[in-house]
Design a protein around this nucleic acid. Structure first.
Lengths: 220, 220
DNA sequence: CCTACCGATCGGTAGG
DNA sequence: CCTACCGATCGGTAGG
């Protein structure tokens, strides 16, 4: 299991100092494993230019490798996208599940899910962009695998809404429509966010959590 | 001024019958002008595969032209994207302004803006996808021109919110954050919508308008 | 608006 | 994991 999408943790690990200095266009952490560097460089490039506009040479040089270096670790450019997309979806799903299990009421669960999922979209906005906007470029088989994970995210949110309606804390017209709108607010962060924006992940997460409570009629 | 982004109107115009039958991969209305057919074919292809994955040959054949036919009307692939993106932004802006001027109260204006802008994203989802997700591929000069139009859309929505707060019908914590969330709900339609979805544009528009009222504390 | 074409680039492979 | 390379494709142009 790749730890890559949760770089916040990896960054706090003690750093070996035996690595040669970074040269050229390398954009990824020189202390990470080669596969992790490739995934990081791919996330960077795919988020910035999109899958098709990114060349395997961009990714290779971003990871500090020769043009053919990608093919030592991945069979094709699409397989690299798949590895990145799948691990990104799995991280997001774990995060959502953890946030929901932290809350003891539907209101707390909704707030935790919106805040933490939003924070992830900000902190991992390059991975999030690939997760949300590049999965169409996968092969049909790989796409199907990722779509199953996406449906699971949707269900998790809808289930929180249904529990809140059942216990009377939420009031929504249609839980599927409302879940989609909640996810729209979060997913769209990956579109508009840029590192030049001053607001912190926590602030953006708190804003989206408050908006979510309004949307389910529990905003006061 | 191109009428292209409002095809609903063009389709109701009487059709001349002197046009030769459609052959090959043509995807656009054979009765439209060549420039309009190129813009239609480009919207189709850019929305489906993205700017970089689309070849000028895809667009040319979609419009019923030879591979070099694009360059009779546009200097480059990017100029074609710019023409499409600009006319799409202008249509969207006109639509938003018209919807807002139709309402006499902030509540009516918000409902009209959300419903009609959402309907546009559904009915013109290919143009909307290009408008919302492909503008990064423009040259810096063209990008700046389009960003000005995007800021104007944002201001229109924020102004409705501010008027509703001023007259006491809305209650929002921060009008900029709330305007962004409202636009997220609309823009995200271009991501998730597909023609296989059964709900009509009117239904989706009404749903988003109702969600918007909840978000501004006027949902009951 | 088309045919024919060019230079550049790209994904991927051979063979160390 | 690299050097060297190949076949295919692409954006764009010449010259009708």
């Amino acid at each position: 299991m790749l730890s890559f999408p949760l770089l916040r943790h990896a960054v706090n690990v003690p750093q070996p100092t035996s690595t040669p200095p970074v040269t050229g266009a390398r954009t990824s952490d020189p202390d990470a494993s080669t596969v992790e560097r490739l995934l990081q460089a791919a996330a960077h490039a795919f988020a910035d230019k999109g899958f098709h506009a990114t060349t395997t040479r961009d990714i290779a040089s971003g990871a500090g490798l020769s043009p053919a270096g990608v093919y030592v670790h991945f069979g094709s450019k699409e397989e690299l996208l798949f590895a990145l997309s799948r691990s990104g979806h799995e991280s997001a799903l774990r995060l959502l599940r953890a946030a929901i299990s932290d809350g003891s009421t539907p209101g707390e669960q909704l707030v935790a899910a919106m805040a933490r999922f939003t924070e992830w979209h900000v902190e991992q906005y390059q991975v999030a962009r690939v997760v949300q906007y590049e999965h169409h470029h996968l092969t049909p088989e790989h796409h199907a695998e990722v779509l199953a994970l996406r449906k699971e995210m949707d269900s998790l949110v809808r289930d929180v809404l249904d529990r809140g309606v059942a216990d009377g804390t939420f009031s929504v017209d249609d839980s599927a429509d409302t879940a989609l709108a909640l996810l729209s607010i979060v997913v769209d962060v990956a579109r508009w966010y840029s590192p030049t924006i001053r607001r912190t992940p926590t602030e953006i997460g708190a804003t989206n959590a408050a908006l979510a409570l309004r949307l389910v009629g529990a905003g006061h």
